Simulated assay, not measured.
Amino acid sequence: MSSEQEYWLSGPIPDVPALLQPAAHALLQSVREIKKYVSDFPEDKLWEKPYGRASAGFHLRHITGVLDRMLSYAEKKALTAEQFNFLKNEGNGENAPSSEKLIHDFEEKVNEALEYFKNTPESILTEERFVGRKKLPSTVIGLLFHAAEHSQRHVGQLLVTVSVLKNR
C-alpha cells in the first residue's frame, strides 16, 4: 500500500470484524496523518494556542485520552483515577512529553484498540453501554465509531493548528 493511499482504500485489516473495518481504517489514517503533519513541527510551538484555539499538544494528548476512555466504556469499565487525571491535564503543557512521545502514545493506544476490535464479536456491537457519570446511553459500536471519527476530527484541527503556527 502506498503511503499516499488512504487506509479505507487498502482493503480489510486482518482479523478485524467487517463492521469495525471503518473505525480501524480511520484510526490508522489518524496515526499516519499525525506523523506527516507533526514530523517537522517545532517543539517550542507544541503548546502555543493560535488565536485562542487548542494547541497541537492538546490535540495529540486528547485523542489518546478519548480513545482510552471509549475503550473503557466499551468494556463496561468505569474510568479510573488515572484516566480522570489524564483528562484533567490534556491541555496542560507543563512538564509535558515531546511531540514524538505524544505520537508514540497515540499509536500505542491505536494498536490497543485494534487488538480490542480483533477480539470483539460482531454479535455484541449493538449491546448497550453507558458513558460518563451521567450514564448516557450508547452501544459498543457507537463508542468505537465515535473514538475513530473523533480522532479524525482532531487530526483535521491539528493540521490547521500546525499549519498556522509553522507559517507565522
Rank of each mutant, 00 (worst) to 15 (best):
G57M: 11
G132W: 02
E100L: 12
Q83C: 07
Q83L: 14
L60H: 08
L87S: 02
S99G: 04
P121H: 03
L144V: 11
Y73I: 02
E94C: 07
N95D: 07
F130S: 00
L46N: 07
V164G: 10
V31T: 11
S123G: 12
H154A: 03
G142D: 11
L144N: 05
E100H: 07
L9N: 15
L143M: 08
E48M: 14
T64R: 01
A26C: 06
M1Y: 03
V31E: 06
S39D: 07
L136G: 05
L143N: 08
K77D: 01
V162W: 02
D105R: 04
V160A: 10
W47R: 10
I124K: 00
F117A: 06
D68L: 09
L87G: 00
F41N: 15
K49G: 08
H62M: 01
E48H: 13
N111A: 04
I124M: 00
A96L: 01
T126I: 02
K109V: 04
D44M: 00
F117V: 12
N111Q: 06
L136K: 14
G65H: 02
S2L: 13
Y37K: 14
K135I: 00
S39W: 02
N111G: 03
V16M: 08
A81S: 07
G11A: 12
P22M: 00
E128C: 06
V160K: 04
Y7M: 14
G93C: 09
Y37F: 15
S138W: 02
H146E: 03
K134E: 12
Y73W: 09
F41V: 07
G11P: 14
H146W: 11
